[in-house]
Amino acid sequence: MTDNQEQLIQEAVEKALQGDMDAVNNIEDRVTRSKAKAALVKAKREAAKTSAEPSSEDKSEESATESKPAPLSLNQKIAGIIASQFPGTVDEESSSETHIQLQPAKWFDVAQYLRDDPACLFDSLQCVTGVDLGEESELEVRYNLHSMTHRHAVEIRIECARNNPKVPSVETVWHIGDWFERETYDMFGIEFEGHRDLRRILLPDDWEGWPLRKDYEVQETYHGIVVPKVKEGWE
């Protein structure tokens, strides 16, 4: 590597560490550019290590500097509102800046409150995602809510047991919950209590198994038709 190249890479990396990626991206020669990117990754890793060390050593200093509270994100504010109205439902440890973790028991009441309370007004349920957290873990349902009037959005996560997953249904609160919950039931087997017509929506009614779980095994035949890939040598 020539001196010129080294200097160029160093300058680009310094600029990138301050947030300006254009310096790295604008390097014309591909080899130099990839070297610069590698150097940047290394520099970032070292910077993370040095900033992690003092905080793990000196916790008391850290808590003193953190006595000034960081501004709350929207998820945290809404979590506070829910916790004051429905004590015991918010799981404070697992909630974070980006999501609210709720206990399943009072989800229906919380949902109605979130839709009707003037400070929240979450009138639109955007997305319901079922997640399989791992072979040894539980299943989870994640709701993305959005408010058309206040233009803000939150994410709510509810965990349920793997063996008998039950979550209260919110299809009477937001009408689209009907189809979203049927789809989550179809793919994961999570039962939504209170849903008036919980049956499969995408797969045929006589399908066996919950496909998007991590331990799903495909059935061999369906009505006499072979399901897995058929011909030899297709890998």
Binding site: L203, Q219, V230, K231, W234
Partner: peptide, 20 residues
């Protein structure tokens, strides 16, 4: 013809209409 791009993990895809 043979299931297309969904041949590998498509549990609900028929791998070719010539099976029926």
């Amino acid at each position: 013809t043979s299931g297309g791009p969904y041949w590998q993990h498509g549990y609900h895809v028929l791998k070719g209409v010539d099976l029926v």
